[in-house]
Design a protein around this nucleic acid. Structure first.
Lengths: 201, 201
DNA sequence: ACAGCCATGTAACTTGTTACATGATTTT
DNA sequence: AAAATCATGTAACAAGTTACATGGCTGT
């Protein structure tokens, strides 16, 4: 729902046309999350269908302008006043992948972690460089883009910390299991992962 | 693509049926990201269509079993060996929302930040509690779920730090602008946000 | 003349989500 | 007997993505 709401928010400031909406969006969020122009038009169609925007004739230059309806204005205020992810956070593919990797046999968990860390650190460097370059220009229009960059930096750092955490946790587990196996065999969990999948008939 | 790959990964261990796949997925990732059972079946249909899985008769108890094809096995190995988000990180709704909030007039940015922080801290508490409760049971099957919880905790902490960062950055900007306005009016950026949207005809 | 951008759209498609229908089996 | 869970599906739909078609205008 991000794009729908983004377009609505941009229309709250003033009526705009499709191509312009993409430009405004990308100016604020930069080249990460590129916005396909086709999607702007399909989204505008759906917003019109849902009575959140209406076509507004043209702007004297032949552009197809859209403006918010009252319902659309309401929707924007609602979006801004209600926090994101109250209940269900979006699925995190990396977390899912590692969760499966550690519970399935034959997966090189350390390798997965290592490959991901290399990639994430690379991204972190890119974001940091982009931030330096953008900051240097010192243009007021870049404020939003700089915040977005910080967001990417913060979450990538968290991702790397989590990878480290997973790695040391895996090490703990394997050494603990080894120690348990030699010292008190009977307390060891069965090595073959148990699959209680509910009722067998 | 997370769900497709998750099902494939679970099928790599052994042939399974639909209901079982959901149970295995939820055991590993917990009650966050609940997996609708209908989607398991539609996803299995699509995986079959794409020749990544095949129906495998039954398991002697009448269940509709699926197993990986060679192509499917390949796909899983590929998923595990290639890092996530090499190019485009997934859209972050919160980052987008704040980026728009700070560049549009009439939005109570401090209020948005504050509301979000309350919500995020609440989530953080919930995750921390869930972690305590799950750790206390000390069951080997919960390893993956605990890692997922840690992931949620790490990223929520990063989110809160970013919110703090945004808040202080906003304060800096407004005081700098105020100081600039009193001390040297001519250096001040125009207060009306500029909207260069590309070519006017 | 030609390349490239501005601008608007459409068609076909993907994954993901919800709601519903239908039975069998198990538990209370 | 009733309620809950197991199990398999279908229909309708949502948001997002890509590729393509079509023009007008601009700069070289």
């Amino acid at each position: 729902m991000s794009i729908r709401h983004s377009l609505l928010a941009l229309l709250q400031e003033q009526p705009r046309y499709g191509y312009q909406l993409r430009a405004e969006f990308e100016q604020r969020t930069g080249s990460t999350w590129p916005l396909n122009i086709g999607q702007v038009y399909t989204t505008l169609d759906r917003l019109e269908r849902d009575s959140l925007v209406t076509r507004d004739g043209d702007d004297g230059e032949g552009h197809v302008m859209y403006r918010l309806t009252d319902a659309g204005d309401n929707e924007v205020r609602n979006w801004f006043s209600h926090p994101v992810a109250l209940t269900n956070p979006p699925r995190n593919e990396l977390a899912i992948k590692l969760a499966l990797a550690v519970t399935l046999p034959g997966v090189d968990v350390a390798g997965v972690i290592q490959a991901q860390r290399v990639s994430s650190m690379r991204s972190l460097q890119d974001y940091t460089k982009a931030k330096r370059d953008t900051s240097a220009q010192n243009r007021a229009e870049d404020t939003a883009w700089l915040l977005v960059l910080d967001s990417l930096i913060f979450s990538t750092e968290a991702e790397i910390r989590w990878l480290d955490h997973c790695e040391s946790r895996m090490l703990q587990l394997s050494t603990a299991r080894a120690a348990g196996a030699t010292r008190s065999e009977k307390h060891v969990q069965p090595h073959t992962t148990s699959h209680s999948t509910g009722g067998r008939k």
